[in-house]
Design a protein around this nucleic acid. Structure first.
Lengths: 205, 205
DNA sequence: CCTTGACTAGACTAAACAGTCAACTATCTA
DNA sequence: TAGATAGTTGACTGTTTAGTCTAGTCAAGG
């Protein structure tokens, strides 16, 4: 009953875009409202603060975008090591596309925002940690499958997953800082080395 | 001639501390002045903006703290692979000490600030990139020496250095986001794997 | 068609913020 | 010791910002 609206969706999209392009702290509620074409009164009808909106926006990002993508790439139907290859390629491709489109490498919004607000915004931090943990499970599962298939050296899957995540995040952050997607190029080869792939035809070290 | 002062030094220290503890965007000029016990007028006597101060503070950090530390750890007198071991240990130790002291893992200020301001503050970004490049040279040189000593698999030293930097940054960022220094524990072993160390007694994978 | 409740508009307040300025003070040097 | 130089002070300005409030508008259900 009553009026319907997608202003809350527009607010989430606008917030995510702006925070990704600039940073959490640099974006004001007015900025978000302007981009979403929503008035302040409506903002506070849906959300009680910028942090509140950010949490909702990150949740939406996970459900609408990241989860489907990861489900596809890390499908248990795919060869374990090939899942990582595909993911590394996807990371490079998506960052290169952003650079092409906006002239800027934007990196990973989760990592940027998480690092920025971790000591400041408990609610946002908790959501970042939640999504981060979910992402780790894809890596961990693929590592376990790769060990079972004897494709990589035996190791602690949780630790290996964390290291892989670190490598990806770090390299992507580097790309943002340098505004150069090409530093992600070598991620594929380096990632394989870190994984401990046994294969002979290992990509460029 | 004229009056002397260390207010500019206090401002740089205060700025670096606050930005590291919180974030670039969350810190105001008033905050910095308060912590440094300096009045606003003096701030603008020495610096023309927060960005201007940040550049000076980062430069000071490099010269006073990072360079001496790196010169020690990455001394060409040390065994190439041992340089990395020592550095990985130092990274863990310093983050764990911060957690002990402040209750928070603060991560790497260069990476946090760089990622936050890369699309916003050209001057600060340029300084971050400059320091980052300097740091890479230590890694690159050690990789080259390790190859020459046949301690690690042959590889492109620049790319390997970039990957090592990515792994470190990524793992440290993870530690900040999770507020848990323990994720850095496994950096030593994972770093050796990524380096491609040939040794038999390789630390925990 | 009218009532109810979801949603909107936008003016308003108060606080936080960056940045300015002229008068003042301390210290160095000649 | 006097003058020039380097640094300090705090009150002041104008702007941006978060957040509030009230009077409304619009759509669905009865």
């Amino acid at each position: 009953m009553g009026r319907t609206s997608d202003a809350n969706l527009r607010l989430m999209d606008a917030a995510l875009e702006l925070i990704w392009e600039e940073s959490y702290g640099a974006v004001t509620i007015d900025d978000i409202c302007t981009r979403a074409d929503v008035r302040k009164g409506s903002f506070y009808y849906f959300y009680k603060s910028k942090a509140d909106l950010a949490v909702a926006a990150l949740d939406r990002m996970w459900n609408e975008s990241w989860k489907p993508t990861l489900d596809g790439i890390f499908s248990p139907a795919a060869d374990p090591v090939a899942r990582f290859s595909a993911y590394f390629a996807w990371v490079y491709k998506s960052q290169a596309a952003l650079k092409q489109k906006l002239g800027k490498v934007l990196g990973c919004p989760l990592c940027s925002v998480g690092s920025e607000v971790s000591t400041q915004e408990p609610g946002v931090s908790a959501k970042v940690r939640e999504i981060f943990s979910r992402k780790l499970r894809y890596y961990e599962s693929a590592v376990r499958d790769a060990i079972a298939a004897k494709q990589i050296e035996a190791c602690d899957p949780a630790k290996k997953a964390s290291a892989i995540a670190g490598l990806i995040e770090g390299v992507v952050a580097q790309a943002r800082i340098m505004n150069d997607p090409e530093v992600i190029q070598s991620l594929a080869g380096q990632g394989m080395t870190l994984l401990g792939v046994k294969s002979l035809a290992q990509a460029s070290a």
